[in-house]
Write a protein that binds this DNA or RNA. Sequence first.
RNA 1: CCCCCCGUAGCUCAAUGGAUAGAGCAGCGCUCUUCUAAGGCGUUGAUGUGGGUUCGAUUCCUACCGGGGGGACCA
Length: 536
Amino acid sequence: MREKVIKLLKSLIPAGTPVVVSVPEDERFGHYTTNVAFALAKAEHVAPLAVAGRLVGELMRRGKDFFARVEAKAPGFVNVWLAPDVLQRNVIEIVKRGAKFGASRALAKEKIQVEFVSANPTGPLTLANGRGGFLGDALANVLAFVGAKVEREYYVNNTGNQIAALGKSLTVALGLNLRQRAPDEKLYQGEYVKAWAAVHARYAEQWKNDPTKLGEAAARDFLKSIKQTLAKKAHIRFDRFTSEKRIYQKKYPTRALALFKKKGVVRKKDGAVWLKTTAYGDDKDRVLITSNGEPTYFFADAGHYLETKRRGFTTKINILGPDHYGYKARIQAAAQLLGLKRSEVIITQALLLVRGGKEVKMSKRRGEFVTFEEMVDEVGADAARFLSLSISPDTHINFDLDLAKERSIKNPVYYAQYAYVRAKGILKKLTTYNLKLKTVKEKALKCLNTPEDMRLILKLLEFPAVVEDTARDYQVHRLPRYALELARAFHNFYEKERVVGETPEVALARAALVNATGIVLKNLFGLLGISAPEKM
RNA sequence: CCCCCCGUAGCUCAAUGGAUAGAGCAGCGCUCUUCUAAGGCGUUGAUGUGGGUUCGAUUCCUACCGGGGGGACCA
């Protein structure tokens, strides 16, 4: 619906004028509202209200069957109300489109890789990993819903220093190898390290002088349980686990380097090889290969980005944790150099853990942390996901575990799911009408004219725009917010209007509306990755 | 010292430069003979501080004050 209003407006004003149409929170300002008159007034040097008045006249003339009312309101807003029969007609449209309502082909030409989680397999997933996991999963759902070819990728850092450090940690945990250890060496000290070492004591002893080999073996196990947690507990899906080792084997980093050299953005200094990322907005150049001839993490990442590009992706979205802040600029520099059409790096902000009013410091190395799995177990997958997705990635979260657990029974997610339960409950009692729902005619919906009906229909019709906006700006937290608004509109409808026991015409019309609500809620839950329960 | 993010109700969070700043939780009143009261209705309550930009600023700029994260030829 918003699209139609925008289209109509665009036909009335000079091309290139940005048109923003929004749904005002206050109903007195219409079903839709726009501030284009302000922009036009500035360009034409006339009063905004006069421009708004002119637009109102034009809109009424061109859309007299579409609008019930159009008004110009000081200081220069244009507010429109849709005609009731337009709204009623669209209820049928929703029912017809079913699971496809809200879907589109908007990004049909795009091949998008979403890289997320990508936690080092040196231990269990942290809460920050989980936050990124939910985000990536839901974002991938949205992009696929608007037609993009989407790949969900987990990049596994299964080589390098941290793997060797893990190996050493295991031998230390068993009391082996103590003399060789440098005093300031960083080690992983969590319970999980001791546990693995205890179970694999003989193996660890055998390979105590080859920490990398030992670390790799443990990393394989840790990755396996990470996969379990993601798939079974959190319902976070991946299409591909890309190994850093394999990126090296396929020589992608070296090929990326050759490409950089060809572009003249590589320099040598103090025996190291640097990429001139400063030319692309970074605040300092970055080392690709150290003076010892060691490749850096960034070197491998550049190779990884080249692989993504070579595999035909037009867009890459990389979701990283807060410890990667300094990384964003250099990754974007590499992405640009390698020729990706669009590259986004989303940094999720810190998630501060609180338990009993006290901060819980997280450190994988010291082993003090609550794992993602523990949190999901405590509050439930749907609640954890909804809560996490409701918040902008830019926001620092103070996550109180005790509160989350205590609150889980009345978590907002249940408010939304309960609306679905109620909708399904009604439809179950109306089996005779269910048969007619598919062939319901526009005329039959005339009785959907109360304020509650109208509000609900309007809210339902917002869905495609919500999806579209999210696919464009990646602000996934818009979805849970919308879910609560829609649930509210339905709960209000439910309190006010009855379906079962009304006259056949009324029952059928309202059943169609209830059915449409169920469809939108289900589609929405699908995007969010939460369940659509029929009973609670 | 430099860079990034945040500061909104008692708490956790919203608000593409728009109109009277919204939810949830917590608190206080109502509300189930009727499709599930995990609901509905009412009520209390907020933009860190000072400047600036403009028709209009929670949003943009600037200087402070607080909180968090980052800074290496580590990952």
